[in-house]
Write a protein that binds this DNA or RNA. Structure first.
Lengths: 261, 261
DNA sequence: CAGTGGTCTAGACCACCGA
DNA sequence: CGGTGGTCTAGACCACTGT
């Protein structure tokens, strides 16, 4: 049955009172997080439909046997994710969303997480080099000091898609070529205890040079997507600088932006 | 051995004790927000240098005459912005960052906020049309229903930079062509009470057609950056769908990603 | 007006880190 | 071990929304 037909005034009260949330106080998982996950699941599965009101926080906290701040913390995390909207004097309701699925970032994941997953990646170069001026500036090291250069060619379905050139601080990671081809840079960093936190990206386009065209099996002069990125860990230290080129005919960046002013 | 965070040996205690934060309880601005702004300013001006510890939350709250949760809320907002890092058992320190300046998004702002600011924008078309299938899907309206189509040509220094084609739900905004050329779409939405919340973007590239080349004063076949975006307000309602093309020789997307897993 | 979220307080116990 | 942030509680008052 489905639906609140009127998109304007969907002030519907949910069947939330009948929803049973299973909170385990013995679990090491924080209560607010358990609640947030179960709320998110309810939204995901349509138990809470777009526009549904959540019911006030006081009642909710009483019903769940939690304090109001704890309930608020759970709700706030979903508001931050863009799944819920709060309005003073009105209530908290599920967002009117077409796109609740791809709420997570990002082309950072596209590239780092998927690296070596589905697509095949061939390591072309993996060596120590002296940092050039731009690399040194991006990684915050002295010009001429040693950094690791990594060049990879990524393909899907037997067709080249991108050429990735990355620079990493020397000694940051143990970059086994075999693992790189099967595991991906991102996972290797994560398992080395490096938590990625932010990245600065520039995305542009240009025509392929003859050499680039040869590498990527394109015609010279065809359009390429270019991306430069510096990635930082959770302490703000640069951990990776990369210059990537993509065949525009086979690749595009697709991501979600959250605006929080 | 990959050793992490040796460069963060700066366990220095800051001159924070001497920092005087001016909190105005009579102000309508929340206390946690006042504190966050002043902390951010201190980081910005280098009073708190990267790596500096902030001092524990309890002391801070006592010194400021605030409760700990309030102080935590202020700190958390800066952690979310990527300016601070918390570590259990260690403390809160200023991030080791090269890039604390451009922490905000995004190409959404690039385009919507700056529209009509520095660069000149000429409105080529501003009319109601019947929604095609892709537009209808993006805006969540019925195919064939009326939407507003807006075509603009943006230039800087007398040179065209981008051609922007946008679709908006009919009646959402009063789109005066004059205001559009001087004020920008984003500001017009904001002053109409629409709060942008998120956007889904696809960025790609391709070669310019003859027509596009003529519009943008490029040669046919030169590389173009393309962007499609659907923007949503804070209730999750689609408020704008756009197809933009940019001269790759004069424009690139530049933005910061925050990873929050 | 009554009801909502927004903010704030003053405590508490726990988990983790470094010495 | 002591100190830190992480979590949680049980209240309180205010600002805003709708009727």
């Amino acid at each position: 049955m489905a639906k609140t037909g009127d998109s304007s005034r969907a002030v519907t009260a949910p069947a939330l009172s009948s929803l049973d949330f299973a909170l385990d106080r013995a679990s090491p998982v924080p209560l607010y997080y358990q609640l947030a996950q179960q709320l998110e699941a309810a939204i995901e599965h349509g138990v809470l439909a777009p526009g549904n009101l959540l019911g006030n926080e006081i009642d909710l906290s009483v019903r769940l046997g939690l304090s109001r701040p704890t309930v608020r913390q759970a709700i706030q995390s979903l508001v931050d994710k863009g799944l819920l909207v709060r309005r003073r004097g009105v209530g908290t309701q599920v967002v009117h969303s077409q796109v609740k699925r791809p709420l997570e970032l990002s082309s950072l994941y596209d590239d780092l997480e998927e690296a070596g997953q589905g697509p095949a990646t061939r390591v072309v170069r993996n060596e120590g080099v002296a940092a050039s001026a731009d690399v040194a500036a991006a990684l915050g090291v002295a010009e001429g000091s040693e950094v690791t250069r990594l060049e990879r060619l990524r393909s899907t379905h037997g067709q080249p898609v991108a050429f990735l050139c990355n620079y990493l601080p020397s000694g940051l990671l143990d970059l086994g070529t075999n693992r790189l081809e099967s595991t991906g840079l991102y996972r290797m960093m994560r398992s080395a205890g490096i938590t990625l936190h932010s990245a600065r990206q520039t995305i542009g386009a240009r025509s392929a040079t003859a050499e680039e065209a040869r590498l990527l099996d394109e015609r010279a002069g065809s359009a390429l997507l270019t991306m430069q990125r510096t990635a930082y860990d959770d302490t703000g230290r640069p951990v990776e600088y990369g210059t990537h080129i993509y065949r525009a005919s086979r690749y595009a960046f697709d991501f979600q932006l959250l605006v929080r002013p």
